[in-house]
């Protein structure tokens, strides 16, 4: 099973890197992303980029953009490019296909967030350090290590679920776009109308982590259940 997951990951990663036509062009796009998210924005925000607890939300949200792109393409892209039927006709187990596709989306989103966080840290220290070393709060590191992959995992799994039935990548992306809007604006609106409470950041991270694990487990179970070779539109 692990070998099969790795095989799907191997293929998905190659396809991802070659989606712009050449790996160099793809690397250039990633470098540009990092320059904006890890260079320009931290330079503009100043020390708040590193010190403000509110930035936690950014590390949760940022990787989702990349994750959602990859997840939308996961099955609908194969369907559009007429490779899905051949993949399903292979001996790969259902779960290996789903997990391989979800993991590559998670990995991409997470790697982008970690990269941006590290480059951002260097940028803030370079431009706004004023001779002292500025460091993220411990909750931010925990968030990057746990919350970011969990949130990416949830979005990737929901994305794969949508992509499984979507006729085109565009269709999957439209549905996921609305979902993302609800997912990001929902908590913001909720916080606006809920009475203000003082939350310990560590407790908050823990609660969100547990919640995400539970929802992710449910989403994965739904994805495994919905992935039936005989019912997937080809």
């Amino acid at each position: 099973m692990l070998n099969d997951i790795y095989t799907v990951l191997w293929k998905e990663a190659r396809e991802l890197v070659l989606q712009q036509g050449s790996p160099w062009r793809w690397a250039g796009m990633q470098a540009l992303n990092l320059a904006v998210l890890g260079g320009f924005l931290p330079w503009q925000f100043g020390r708040a980029w590193v010190e403000s607890p509110a930035m936690m939300a950014l590390w949760l949200w940022m990787p989702l953009l990349n994750t959602v792109n990859v997840a939308a393409d996961s099955f609908a892209g194969e369907r559009e490019r007429h490779t899905l039927e051949t993949l399903l006709a292979s001996r790969l187990p259902d779960r290996a296909i789903v997990l391989g596709k979800v993991l590559v989306a998670v990995g991409y989103g997470w790697a982008t967030a970690l990269g941006a966080a590290l480059v951002g840290l260097v940028s803030v220290n370079l431009f706004h350090g004023n001779g002292e070393w500025v460091m993220y709060r411990p909750e931010v590191w925990v968030g990057l290590a746990l919350l970011t992959p969990l949130a990416s995992g949830l979005v990737a799994t929901l994305g794969a679920l949508v992509s499984l039935r979507a006729s085109t990548v565009r269709h999957a992306f439209q549905v996921l776009g609305v979902g993302m809007l609800v997912l990001t604006m929902g908590p913001v609106l909720a916080m606006r109308y809920l009475p203000p409470v003082t939350v310990d950041p560590r407790q908050a991270v823990l609660v969100v982590c547990v919640g995400l694990v539970a929802v992710l487990a449910l989403a994965l179970a739904a994805a495994f259940n919905r992935f039936r070779r005989t019912r997937i539109p080809l």
Partner: peptide, 28 residues
């Protein structure tokens, strides 16, 4: 597990090389 297939469409990953396509299905 015991069957090979060329279905209605060739089902090749067009971004990948010929070698990578066969490598993927060889691993499978």
């Amino acid at each position: 597990r015991q069957a090979g297939a060329l279905l209605e469409h060739a089902g090749l990953y067009e971004r990948l090389s010929a070698e990578a396509n066969l490598e993927f299905y060889g691993r499978i």
